[in-house]
């Protein structure tokens, strides 16, 4: 539904619903840039950014469209990473099955955490997800199969579907890009689906949605599980790219980082999380030589950004162009 041709839309209104032309244009630009990028930029850096971008998009589905702040999303990223790494290395799963297995592990955890947390609101919801994340972290530290402090190292990348040799960096890059685009489009579709419409209604006014006969908790739970699943897809893919599953990905700082990416890029915008993830990963890359100061500098940049672009980079851009991106 294109709202721009409608006589009733005031000039100040963004296109409210539906897949708007700006979305399509932005998507094409993004895809073209990502296809060309590995010929100019170090592919491993790009793959890292793509995994985080998908992770942030998954997170945004929950905070941006349901209004729920999960402070434990690293659980899904990290446990899917362990699942994929373990199944590829110990059980000899081919990469497609390893990714599927890791993702499924995140889905199952999503159902459990979601069922426990979804009835609470606001800070209580964040608390429950954080508590659960800490549990998973300590479990990962102690359990034998995760390799504790060392993690699961030298995970074989294998051959995708028996054809594509993922040892080749460029091949791997395009596989990761395909996974990212698939995840991105599925999340986009979920936001612009009959289900997404109900989610927006619940976010806008939960009692009213209930009074219309919607069992709000069930919708929120499904959103949570979807978000966990896509976060898992990102984590499983990341484990194969870096041939490593480690405690970093289940640590609470990782949960914090995804909040940062989403806020920087623009909460509740379609492209914001992607932009936010690229900014954060780039910053980390350039600031790496500062050692322990990275976090401090990151924090300062974050504060400056949040104070100057309240809506995030993409949110501000959309506001400038009067388009919802």
């Amino acid at each position: 539904m294109s709202a721009t041709t409608d006589p009733y839309v005031g000039a100040t209104l963004p296109a409210v619903a539906g897949v708007s032309p700006p979305h399509v244009v932005a998507f094409l630009i993004m895809t073209a840039a990502l296809v060309a990028a590995p010929f100019f930029v170090y592919p491993v850096f790009l793959m890292k950014a793509l995994c985080f971008a998908l992770f942030a998009c998954a997170f945004n589905l929950l905070i941006g469209y349901v209004g729920l702040l999960s402070f434990g999303h690293a659980v899904f990223l990290g446990s899917a990473g362990y699942g994929a790494a373990h199944s590829a290395k110990v059980w000899g799963f081919p990469p497609e099955l390893a990714i599927l297995f890791g993702t499924a592990a995140a889905t199952v955890l999503g159902v459990v955490v979601g069922a426990l947390a979804i009835r609470s609101k606001g800070i209580y919801f964040a608390n429950i997800t954080l508590a659960f994340a800490q549990m998973v972290y300590f479990f990962s530290l102690q359990a034998a199969f995760t390799g504790g402090e060392d993690g699961i190292q030298s995970v074989p990348r294998g051959t995708l579907l028996g054809v594509l040799n993922l040892k080749d960096t460029l091949t791997l890059y395009f596989v990761v890009l395909a996974i990212f685009l698939l995840g991105f489009l599925l999340i986009f579709r979920a936001i612009h689906s009959p289900f997404g419409q109900v989610l927006k209604a619940i976010r806008e006014n939960e009692p009213r949605a209930i009074s219309l006969g919607y069992r709000a908790e069930q919708y929120k739970l499904l959103a949570f599980v979807l978000s966990a699943t896509f976060a898992g897809l990102a984590g499983a893919t990341k484990a194969l790219v870096f041939q490593l599953a480690s405690l970093t990905d289940v640590h609470w700082t990782m949960s914090g980082e995804v909040v940062l990416m989403t806020l920087l890029g623009g909460l509740g915008t379609v492209f914001g999380p992607v932009v936010g993830a690229f900014i954060v990963v780039t910053l980390e890359n350039y600031l790496a030589q500062l050692g322990a100061w990275v976090t401090v500098v990151q924090g300062v940049i974050f504060v400056i950004c949040v104070l100057t672009f309240r809506r995030g980079v993409v949110g501000e851009l959309g506001n400038l162009l009067r388009k919802s991106l």
């Binding site: 539904m1 579709r189 612009h192 689906s193 009959p194 289900f195 419409q197 109900v198 919607y214 499904l222």
Partner: peptide, 20 residues
Amino acid sequence: VALQRKRGGSFDFWRSERVL
């Protein structure tokens, strides 16, 4: 949104909202 509730299919996250 209200009409949609009676229509059903509100958990369909894979369908385009254009069906509405």
